[in-house]
Computed example of a mutant assay.
Amino acid sequence: MESRLLSVFGKQFVRGISTTSSACGKRNFKKFPIFNKRGTKIFKAQQAKHPHPDVPIYDYGVRPTGYKIGNKYVQVDEMIPEIVVPDLTGFKLKPYVSYRVSDIVAPPMTPEELFGAVYVRKITEDFKNGKIGPDNQSLEPSPEEKMTAEEARAKVQAIRSDIV
């Protein structure tokens, strides 16, 4: 605290700078927050039974898993978060991906691209080896050639989701 006396024509002025606020008198709870882990055991016990309105119970951003009725806490199973973690055994990539990696944006797949991704290689090999019948059908169809349109579309969507 800094104070300075100033005298002008016999009158004395006092100029002061205070670094504390005077809200709530001597109990300025807003300036010095006492969170859950701070304070004595007696203070924590008092806060648990009768919380002081100026000292909020700080939850550190954690959502509650129930609600309070009077002094009783009711646990709700649906409010407990369920963490789903995939099984990454045999996964080839490392768990860290750099933020400097450029974004990969895949445009919508056209029917020509779908045909090229699924069928072209097998048809070309069958043509070179002479395994195409009189009606231009493969004499030894692969599992890809036996797929229906819906199965092929689902397979391509799975491949595209792995790329993106």
Results as ranks from 00 to 15, higher is better:
115 F>E: 12
146 K>Q: 09
118 V>P: 00
108 P>E: 15
99 Y>M: 08
143 P>Y: 03
108 P>M: 11
130 G>I: 07
107 P>H: 02
149 A>M: 02
20 T>W: 04
115 F>S: 11
25 G>F: 07
136 N>M: 13
83 I>T: 00
144 E>M: 01
142 S>W: 04
85 V>R: 02
105 V>Q: 12
46 Q>V: 03
88 L>T: 09
26 K>D: 11
133 G>Y: 09
128 K>H: 09
90 G>M: 07
151 E>I: 00
97 V>R: 06
150 E>Q: 08
142 S>T: 14
60 Y>H: 09
163 I>R: 05
132 I>C: 03
3 S>M: 07
77 D>E: 15
50 H>D: 08
52 H>T: 03
125 E>A: 15
9 F>A: 14
122 K>L: 01
141 P>R: 03
123 I>C: 02
123 I>S: 06
69 I>L: 14
83 I>R: 00
83 I>F: 03
137 Q>R: 15
68 K>T: 15
94 K>D: 13
73 Y>N: 01
8 V>L: 12
99 Y>I: 04
46 Q>A: 01
101 V>R: 13
93 L>S: 09
36 N>H: 06
76 V>W: 03
157 Q>V: 01
29 F>E: 04
81 P>W: 03
91 F>M: 09
100 R>Y: 11
61 G>F: 09
42 I>N: 10
94 K>A: 14
70 G>M: 04
12 Q>T: 15
124 T>H: 06
19 T>D: 13
163 I>F: 11
152 A>Y: 02
26 K>A: 13
17 I>T: 15
117 A>T: 05
